[in-house]
């Protein structure tokens, strides 16, 4: 049984831009992009969502999601194994 947890943190960058965090570790694709989709209505233009995932197709799924929904993929940071941290600009 896969146990996963995720949490959100909100931080304010400057006065306008906010960074939101999503930990999708342990979630199998396409669960991470569905979580991103659920969060997206709360994101304002200019906000950044930083997502951590460890599914092997995590990066591919996020790239496709960004491409088809018109969001900008800012960065991909490779960590251990399949684990990566991706920043999305809304």
């Amino acid at each position: 049984m896969v146990v996963f947890c995720w949490f959100l943190c909100l931080a304010t960058v400057g006065e306008k831009m906010a960074v939101q965090y999503l930990d999708a570790s342990g979630l199998k694709c396409p669960q991470p992009v569905l979580k991103i989709a659920v969060l997206s209505p709360d994101m304002q233009t200019g906000d950044i969502l930083e997502v951590i995932g460890d599914c092997p197709t995590f990066e591919t799924d996020v790239r496709v999601w960004c491409s088809r929904l018109g969001r900008t993929l800012l960065s991909v940071r490779q960590e251990n194994g399949y684990r990566k941290t991706i920043q999305i600009l809304f």
Binding site: C29, P30, V33, L34, W65, L69
Partner: peptide
């Protein structure tokens, strides 16, 4: 994945 992305698009 295609279904999930499609749902995401419609949701958006």
């Amino acid at each position: 994945h295609e279904m999930a992305i499609g749902i995401c698009e419609h949701y958006d």
